[in-house]
Computed example of a mutant assay.
Amino acid sequence: MKWTIDSDRPIYKQLVEQLELRIISGLYSPGDKLESVRDMAMAAGVNPNTMQKSLTELERMNLVYSQRTSGRFITEDIKVIEDAKRNLAFREIESFLEKMKLLGFGKKEILLLMEKIEEGETKDDHFKC
């Protein structure tokens, strides 16, 4: 998964989000050893201090833990990962619903639109809600 950094938000927060997604999606498996801070920073194209700050935040979230002489590892606590997955899903849905309401869609219209898209209809099919 490629690192993507935007200039509109703090870099460390973007790194936290991307690392969290990698953990939740299974790209990093429970118990996996992470690369060194320096290697991860180089791959992401960021300052090592920024990567360190992101990893510290992931430790606070209990998604990552440190072993003094061995490095950092992904948590082996599946419940922590599942909770993070649900929290991320909730945040994404909440953001989506907020945007849809700003566009003037009501609950029924949103659900109908989602069903149609799920069934494979596209904006080019000219469907109405």
Rank of each mutant, 00 (worst) to 15 (best):
I5C: 09
I5T: 10
D6I: 05
S7W: 10
P10D: 13
I11K: 15
V16E: 02
E17S: 13
Q18V: 03
E20H: 05
E20C: 07
L21N: 11
I24C: 02
S25L: 05
S25A: 10
G26W: 02
Y28D: 06
S29N: 13
D32N: 15
K33G: 09
L34K: 06
E35C: 04
S36I: 06
V37A: 03
R38V: 12
R38K: 15
R38H: 13
R38S: 13
D39H: 11
M40W: 06
A41I: 09
A44T: 09
N47S: 13
Q52H: 14
S54V: 03
S54T: 03
S54C: 03
L55P: 04
L55I: 14
T56N: 14
T56E: 14
E57R: 14
L58V: 06
E59W: 01
E59R: 15
M61G: 01
V64R: 03
V64F: 06
Y65A: 05
S66T: 07
Q67P: 00
R68D: 09
T69C: 00
T69F: 11
S70K: 15
R72N: 06
I74V: 15
T75G: 03
T75R: 03
E76H: 06
I78D: 08
I81L: 05
I81Q: 02
I81T: 04
K85W: 00
K85T: 09
R86P: 00
R86H: 03
R91G: 01
R91K: 14
E92M: 08
E94R: 08
F96G: 00
L97Y: 06
E98K: 11
K101W: 02
F105E: 01
K107G: 04
K108P: 00
E109V: 00
I110W: 02
L112E: 13
L113V: 00
L113H: 08
M114K: 07
M114Y: 10
E115C: 04
E115W: 10
K116W: 09
G120Q: 09
G120E: 08
E121L: 15
D125G: 03
D125R: 05
H126Q: 13
K128P: 00
